[in-house]
Deep mutational scan, measured.
Amino acid sequence: MAAAAAAGAGPEMVRGQVFDVGPRYTNLSYIGEGAYGMVCSAYDNVNKVRVAIKKISPFEHQTYCQRTLREIKILLRFRHENIIGINDIIRAPTIEQMKDVYIVQDLMETDLYKLLKTQHLSNDHICYFLYQILRGLKYIHSANVLHRDLKPSNLLLNTTCDLKICDFGLARVADPDHDHTGFLTEYVATRWYRAPEIMLNSKGYTKSIDIWSVGCILAEMLSNRPIFPGKHYLDQLNHILGILGSPSQEDLNCIINLKARNYLLSLPHKNKVPWNRLFPNADSKALDLLDKMLTFNPHKRIEVEQALAHPYLEQYYDPSDEPIAEAPFKFDMELDDLPKEKLKELIFEETARFQPGYRS
Rank of each mutant, 00 (worst) to 15 (best):
A4C: 00
A5G: 06
A6P: 05
A6W: 10
G8I: 07
G10Y: 13
P11Q: 14
P11G: 08
P11V: 07
E12K: 13
M13C: 08
R15I: 13
Q17W: 01
Q17N: 06
V18F: 12
D20P: 04
V21Q: 06
P23D: 06
Y25D: 02
N27C: 13
S29E: 03
Y30A: 00
E33P: 02
G34E: 13
A35E: 04
V39E: 15
C40S: 14
C40G: 08
S41C: 12
S41V: 08
A42R: 02
D44L: 12
N45I: 14
N45E: 13
V46C: 13
V46S: 10
K48H: 13
V49L: 14
V49Y: 13
V51Q: 13
A52G: 12
I53Y: 04
I53R: 00
K54W: 03
K55W: 02
S57L: 13
E60K: 15
H61T: 13
Y64C: 15
R67Q: 11
R67G: 12
T68N: 15
R70H: 09
L75R: 15
R77V: 01
F78P: 02
F78T: 02
H80K: 02
E81Q: 04
E81W: 07
N82R: 02
I84Y: 03
G85V: 14
G85H: 09
N87A: 01
D88R: 01
I89P: 00
R91Y: 02
A92Y: 08
A92T: 13
A92W: 00
Q97T: 12
M98D: 09
M98V: 00
D100Y: 15
D100K: 12
D100W: 12
I103M: 05
D106F: 05
E109V: 13
T110A: 10
T110C: 10
T110D: 09
L116V: 00
K117F: 10
Q119F: 01
D124I: 04
D124H: 04
H125S: 03
Q132R: 06
L134G: 05
L134E: 08
R135V: 02
L137Q: 14
I140C: 09
S142W: 03
N144K: 13
V145A: 00
H147M: 02
H147A: 08
H147K: 05
D149Y: 13
K151C: 10
P152S: 13
S153A: 05
L155D: 06
L155T: 01
L155G: 01
L156P: 00
N158P: 01
T159K: 09
T160L: 08
T160Q: 07
D162V: 13
L163M: 10
L163N: 04
K164L: 04
I165H: 09
I165M: 05
C166Y: 10
D167T: 03
D167S: 02
D167H: 06
F168A: 09
F168C: 03
A171M: 05
V173M: 11
A174I: 01
D175P: 02
D177L: 07
D177Y: 13
D177H: 10
H178F: 06
H178T: 09
D179Y: 15
V188F: 13
A189C: 07
T190I: 08
T190E: 02
T190N: 10
A195F: 04
I198E: 04
M199D: 08
L200Y: 07
N201S: 00
K203I: 14
Y205G: 06
K207T: 13
K207S: 13
I209Y: 06
D210V: 14
I211Q: 05
S213Q: 06
G215C: 05
G215T: 07
C216I: 03
E220V: 13
P226L: 07
G230H: 01
K231H: 00
K231I: 07
H232M: 00
Y233F: 15
D235H: 11
N238C: 10
G242V: 08
L244I: 05
L244A: 04
E250W: 03
E250V: 12
L252H: 13
N253E: 09
I256H: 09
I256E: 09
I256W: 11
L258R: 07
A260L: 08
N262E: 10
L265T: 06
P268I: 01
P268G: 03
K270S: 02
K272C: 07
V273G: 00
P274E: 07
P274F: 00
W275V: 05
W275T: 06
W275E: 07
F279E: 03
K285R: 10
K285P: 10
L287F: 07
L289Q: 14
L290H: 01
L290D: 07
K292C: 06
K292M: 15
M293A: 09
T295Q: 05
T295I: 08
N297C: 06
P298L: 09
K300D: 06
R301Q: 01
E303Y: 08
V304Y: 04
E305R: 08
Q306L: 14
Q306D: 04
A307N: 00
L308K: 01
L308C: 06
L308N: 00
A309C: 07
L313F: 10
E314V: 13
E314A: 08
Y316Q: 09
D318S: 02
S320D: 05
D321I: 03
E322H: 00
A327Q: 01
A327N: 02
F329M: 11
D332V: 14
M333I: 15
L335G: 10
D336L: 04
K340I: 06
E341A: 05
E341N: 04
E341K: 12
L343Q: 15
E345F: 02
L346Q: 14
E349Y: 05
T351R: 03
Q355A: 05
P356Q: 09
Y358I: 13
Y358P: 08
